[in-house]
Computed example of a mutant assay.
Amino acid sequence: MRAAVLREFNLPISVEEVELLDPDPDRVLVRTKASPFCSTDVTSFHGNLGKIPPTILGHASAGEVIEVGSRVAGIKPGQRVIVPGTPECGTCYYCGIGRPDQCSELFDLGGIYPDVARTAEGQLVSAAGCVGGYAEIMNVSKNQVFPVESDLPYDVLALLGCGITTGVGSVFNVAKVQPGDSVAVVGCGHLGLWAVQAARLAGAARIIAIEPLADRRALAGELGATDLVDPSLQDAVAAVKSATAGRGADVVIEAAGAPEAQRLALEVSRRAGTVVYSGVDHGTAEVTLPQIPLAVQSRQLVSTQNGNVRMRRDLPRYIGLLERGLLDASPIITSRYALDEINLALKKSETRDDLSGVIVF
Results as ranks from 00 to 15, higher is better:
N308M: 09
D155K: 14
S35I: 02
Q123K: 14
A184H: 14
L327C: 15
G180A: 04
G63T: 03
I207T: 07
Y318H: 11
A135C: 09
D26L: 10
L11V: 12
L6C: 03
S39W: 11
T274N: 08
A209F: 05
N48C: 01
G69K: 12
Q123C: 07
L339N: 08
K142R: 15
A60D: 15
K176Y: 06
R71K: 14
A239N: 01
V237F: 06
A209E: 01
I359K: 02
A62L: 09
H59V: 04
L20F: 08
I164E: 00
A338L: 04
P153A: 10
S150G: 02
P100R: 07
A218S: 14
S232Y: 12
G279A: 08
S70D: 15
P290A: 10
V145N: 10
A135Y: 05
A218E: 15
A214R: 07
A245C: 12
D314N: 14
C162F: 07
A261P: 02
I210E: 03
F172R: 07
R317T: 14
T351W: 01
R31H: 13
D24C: 15
T284P: 01
K241E: 12
I52E: 10
L346R: 03
A158T: 13
S44T: 11
T91P: 00
P316C: 14
E286K: 01
E254H: 02
G203W: 06
A199P: 06
S182R: 11
D26E: 15
V156L: 05
A120M: 12
A239S: 12
R270E: 09
T40H: 14
A345D: 06
R2K: 15
V30S: 04
L21F: 12
M1R: 05
Q300V: 07
G110W: 12
T43W: 05
T40E: 09
D353A: 10
G187N: 10
L233D: 07
Q79K: 00
H190V: 13
R217L: 09
S61I: 00
A199M: 04
A218D: 12
G203N: 07
L160V: 04
E260R: 08
E260F: 04
Q123M: 10
P77T: 08
